[in-house]
Amino acid sequence: MAIPSLAPRCALTRTVAVPFALLFISFTLLFSYHPPFKATLSKFAPFITSHTAGPLYTAAVVYLVRLSHADELLKSLASVNAYLPLHDPWPIILFHTGDFDDTPVQDDFLASLREKIGGPSNNSELDFIDRVEFVKIDWVLPEGIPHTKEELDPVSPSSWPGYHHMCAFYATKIFFNPRLRDVTYYLRMDTDSLFIEPLCYDPFEVMHVHQRSYGYLGIGNDAPQVTKGLWHFIRDYADSHPEVALQLNASKMWEWPSNSTNGDVDWDEVPIHGYYNNFEIVKLEEFRKPEIKEWFDHLVQYPEGFYKWRWGDAPLRWATTQMFFDMERDTERLCGIRYYHPYNYVEQCECVPFHA
């Protein structure tokens, strides 16, 4: 009997064995070599949240400013530079209505800010100055609102219409401002707001890792004289939107005005809760959802609420979160922020360093 040749079998063995050997060598070299990934990625540090898991995010610190309040704004910005530990150099956006239109005015302000900071703290002074942006917004009285106080007779004539514009801006319009289109979170500050001690964590990181939609320091009340008609407005909206009524009635934190033993309560005399939202952190996309935008559109269609009765953004932010968010899952009280605002009293809680 002829003995079969081993040549084809050996050739086949070589054909299979050689690529496997090469593949083995390649994997050995690959896993024994450690390329400088950190050095490569360091170029993108401003866009990477290295301390967080999940998708990347963007953020901004926002103000609504007037040139007449430049001195207090400089103090506030200096406190942000010194005491707010952000892992990434997010922009500082100064919304204004025309005060800072001219380049010389902007240059003078930035020179004063550089002098105020005086030197590097958390960031170099040059880096911080370069993060400041001036963004103009246009404010016009809505259709149907008289252009004189005498004809409109607003509740708060001394601050009309500037303060009323501000309330409308922060209550509804800011979420759709073009400059914030690609921003995940904003942190709001007022010109008379100050951080007074270092914060021990990055608040944007807390919001992102905990997947919160709204971050706040404390809750107060807005006076009845500037919330006239607001309880009834919310009640009417809930009555026409059963899902909103269900959400409010299920909330442990929401309470409708109740009847007293002496008869019906005048709802216009009952204070409404409101966040101290001269400091707040907002996840913008959550406030752009269709059901919330429908609520905002409803507010805008009744401009007297803002421009005659001076409904504030603080109680409206409270109502909005109660109407559409799970307060335990979606909101975060941010502890440890030593913060000053002339009209706030916030009970302090301990600052605990955050570890994702």
Rank of each mutant, 00 (worst) to 15 (best):
S5I: 10
P8Q: 05
T13D: 00
T13L: 12
V16T: 09
F20E: 07
H34I: 13
L41V: 15
L41Y: 13
S42P: 11
S42N: 14
K43D: 07
S50E: 13
L56D: 09
T58A: 11
V62D: 08
H69I: 02
L73M: 05
L77C: 05
A78S: 14
V80G: 00
N81A: 09
L84S: 06
L86D: 09
D88P: 03
P91W: 03
L94P: 07
L94I: 06
H96W: 00
H96I: 10
H96Y: 05
H96M: 06
D102H: 04
L110V: 04
E115W: 03
G119Y: 05
F134A: 11
V135F: 09
I137Y: 07
L141P: 00
E143N: 06
E143S: 14
I145L: 01
D153P: 00
P157Q: 06
P157G: 03
T172F: 05
K173P: 13
R179T: 06
R181W: 11
L187P: 01
D190A: 09
L199R: 05
M207N: 00
A223T: 15
A223Q: 14
V226E: 10
I234E: 14
D236W: 02
Y237K: 08
S240E: 14
K252F: 04
E255I: 04
S260K: 14
D266I: 03
D268C: 05
D268I: 10
E269Q: 10
E269G: 15
V270G: 13
Y275N: 02
F279W: 06
F279C: 01
E280M: 08
I281P: 02
E291C: 00
E294F: 01
W295F: 15
H298R: 06
Q301G: 13
Y302C: 14
E304C: 09
F306V: 12
R310F: 12
R310D: 02
R317L: 07
R317Q: 04
R317C: 02
F324V: 04
F325I: 05
Y340C: 02
E350K: 09
V352M: 06
